[in-house]
Amino acid sequence: MAETAPLWAAVVLPVALVLVAWAAASVDARSAGLGRAVLRLLVQQRRLTRAADVLLVRVGTTLLPVAAVLAAVVLPLGFRSVSDLPDGIVWFNAMEALAWAAVWLTGWGPNSALSLIGGYRFLAQGLAYELPHMLAITTAALGAESLRVGALVDAQAGLWFAVWMPVAFGVYLLSALAMAFWGPFDQPVGTDVAGGAASELAGVDRLLFLGGRWLLFVVAAAFSVPLFLGGGQGPFLPAWAWTVLKTAAVLGLLMWARRRVPTVRMERYVELAWVVLTPLAVAQALVVAVVVLGR
C-alpha cells in the first residue's frame, strides 16, 4: 500500500514542514507576528563570544534543522513518504539522536557558562528520555513485525497501535517533547539560564537553532501518527487529510500540555524515567511480543 513519492517531494517536504512549524509556533505564541520575529533575526548583526569555537556553533545550529528534516524522510503523508526506507524506524531514531550532538555543540561553542550548562542539560535529558523512547518505537515495530514505516501503517488498518499499546504511545509523546527540548522539557534552553544553549546566539544562527527546534518538535509529533495512530487510515476523508488531522491533534495536545506543567528538571525526571517509565515500556513490549507470538 505504501509507495514512494516522486523525487520533487524532496523539495516540497522541507517547505511543508516549515509551514506546519510556522503555524504551530503562531498558535503557540497566540500571535501572527512570527514573520516579524524571523525578520528581526535576519537583520541582526552576527554575534561572536570571546574565544568562541565558531565552527562548533555553526555545526550545531545547522545540524538541528538538517537532522529534523532528514528524519521526516520516512514520514508518510497519507500513504506516501519521500522515501519509505526499509529500516525507516532506525533511520528516524538515528536522525533524532543527532539533536544530542547539535544541542551540545551549540552549548559548548560560545565559551559561555550559561550556554555550557544548557548544552549539558540536554545530554542529561537524553539519558532520561532516549531509552523509554527507543523501547516505545521498537514496540510499535514489533507490532508490525517490520522496521518499515509503511508496513507499520498497513498493520494498523484494523486497530490503531495506540489502542492496544497505550503505554508505548504515552511514553513516545513524552519523549517527543523531550527530544525537541520543548514545553515542559525546555530546560536546555530555559529562562533560568537566560536561554541556555541558545543564550549567546543571535541572527541567523539563532533562527536556525530555534527554528530547527520547532521543526524537530513538529516531526517528532507527526511521527506518532504513523507509529501509533494509524497514519492515513480512516473512513470518508482522503488519507492525506487524516494524516494532517491527526498530526494537528497531536500537536494541539502537546501544546496544551505545555501550559499545564512547569519545566521538568532532569535531576528529578531521570529517576522517574529509569525506575518507572523504562520497566513500564519493557512490560508493554512483553505484552506486544506475546500477542505477536499468538497470531
Binding site: 520575529a37 528581526r40 541582526q44
Partner: peptide, 13 residues
Amino acid sequence: RRWPRASGPAAAD
C-alpha cells in the same frame, strides 16, 4: 504592546 521579552543581550533589540 505585546512586545517580546529578550532573556539576554543576544536576543535583544
